[in-house]
């Protein structure tokens, strides 16, 4: 196993792939669809926002380990935060996974385990799909989001 693969498929990621957190539908709130047609990853993000705070967030869908783990970790990271905080976190997450492979990794709490994606540029779209879909849910946009 190469070190890059060890970075990518860390135990935390494999665990979130096997047992994704908040993997369910939510009724009554906002929802948005994400779909990467070339690779087939598909996600629905459900969201309830109360006074600008993310009261609950969940997802369903199918995809690779990276997309599933990223969605799962995202739901854990943004629940209880304000929408603005979640947007800012997305910016920093996006910077982390698209930084040059040798750049220093800024700590983003448990999201930091996804920093290994930067060494696999073709997989960035897998890690970011859930986040782009979350943002579409914030904006209450109807169109299906894609990161391809």
């Amino acid at each position: 196993m190469t070190p890059e693969l060890d970075d990518l498929y860390q135990e935390v990621i494999l665990d979130h792939n096997r047992r994704p957190r908040n993997f369910r539908a939510l009724g009554g709130g906002r929802r948005a669809e994400g779909f990467n047609p070339l690779c087939g990853d598909r996600i629905t993000v459900f969201l309830t926002v109360d006074n600008g705070v993310i009261a609950d967030v969940a997802f369903q869908g199918s995809g690779c380990a990276i997309s599933k783990a990223s969605a799962s970790l995202m739901t854990e990271s943004v629940k209880g935060r304000t929408v603005d905080e979640a947007q800012a976190l997305f910016e920093r997450f996006q910077q982390m996974i698209t930084a040059p492979a040798d750049a220093a990794v800024e700590s983003l709490g448990k999201l930091t385990v996804l920093a290994g994606v930067r060494q696999f540029p073709v997989r960035v779209k897998c890690a970011s799909l859930a986040w782009h879909t979350l943002r579409a849910a914030f904006d209450a946009r109807d169109e299906v989001v894609s990161t391809e």
């Binding site: 190469t2 693969l5 498929y9 990276i66």
Partner: peptide
């Protein structure tokens, strides 16, 4: 195991396959 994860790991072993629909 999702085929894209298979594809990524195989690539690191020098093996090029296709994963997807």
């Amino acid at each position: 195991v999702h085929p894209h994860d298979i594809g990524t790991i195989l690539d690191r072993e020098g093996v090029a396959i296709r994963a997807g629909h």
